[in-house]
């Protein structure tokens, strides 16, 4: 049984169809990339399963999302954390007026035991040493790359079974892009499955096990890493070869 299954998902914003009949899945232990140009519904697909579309006026018109076999279609965003699904949202969305430590504490909001929270915060600071010197700094004053590290740390603190990452490399300097992808691979090797939505197809396809290519609100094709990287269409459109 796949960890995450999305069947025939369709989403509308008002009268505009954002995605139509989209199906994909994530197996236990995989990194799955969703790539494609801007505005084809990649993030919409992710936001539909994380419940975020509700806050920006989207509506799931059909389809089903299952996590570990349970139907989680239409779950509210805050209910997903309890299921073991964590989201790194587009644009990072750290808490700008809270300190780095407080941001991590909020990431651990659902953990009741204070000693576990402290251990997990320490683990995140070890995973992202850049944040270590800045624990008491207001998160809004961090650089974009550092904020992305913090957003990633905040979402990993609950040790999610599935990490949803929405454009984690967007707006980052090349150094940080490399660092983010290294971290994603590292996290994955420790057992967290990852669904990755990326415009940076080259990096995403490099890091993933499998991928889906979105075009105009639909999946145009999918495949394993090697077949995608060597696919003529992918090379021409997304890898610039």
């Amino acid at each position: 049984m796949p960890l995450l299954e999305v069947d025939n998902l369709s989403v509308r914003y008002g009268s505009i169809k954002a995605i139509t009949d989209v199906s994909f899945h994530v197996e236990q232990g995989e990194i799955v990339a969703i790539v494609g140009p801007n505005g084809v519904g990649k993030s919409t697909a992710l936001n539909a399963l994380s419940g975020i579309i509700e806050s920006n006026g989207g509506l799931i018109t059909s389809g089903e999302v299952r996590f570990e076999g349970h139907n989680i279609t239409g779950f509210k965003t805050h209910e997903l954390v309890q299921q073991g699904i964590s989201l790194v949202p587009e644009g990072r969305r750290i808490f700008p007026r809270m300190t780095v430590i407080e941001n991590l504490e909020m990431g651990a909001f659902t953990i009741k035991d204070k000693s576990i929270v402290n251990n997990e915060i320490q683990r995140m600071l070890d995973l992202f040493p850049l944040l270590k010197d800045r624990t008491l700094q207001q998160a809004g004053t961090l650089s974009t790359g550092e904020q992305q590290m913090l957003a990633l740390g905040r979402s990993l603190i609950i040790q999610p079974k599935l990490l949803l990452a929405d454009e984690p490399s967007l707006g980052l300097s090349p150094n940080f892009v490399d660092m983010i992808f290294e971290k994603l691979v590292e996290i994955n090797s420790e057992g967290t499955s990852i669904l990755l939505v990326e415009q940076n197809a080259r990096m995403a396809l490099e890091a993933c096990h499998r991928g889906y290519v979105f075009e105009m609100g639909k999946i145009s094709f999918d495949g394993k890493k090697d077949s995608l990287v060597n696919d003529e269409r992918v090379q021409k459109s997304y890898l610039g070869k």
Partner: peptide
Amino acid sequence: SKLGKSIRAVSDDPVAASIVGINP
């Protein structure tokens, strides 16, 4: 306090708050 901080989190960004499992 933890709940007090969750008030600040919702104040900063209600969507981000729900992402970490806070019910806004």
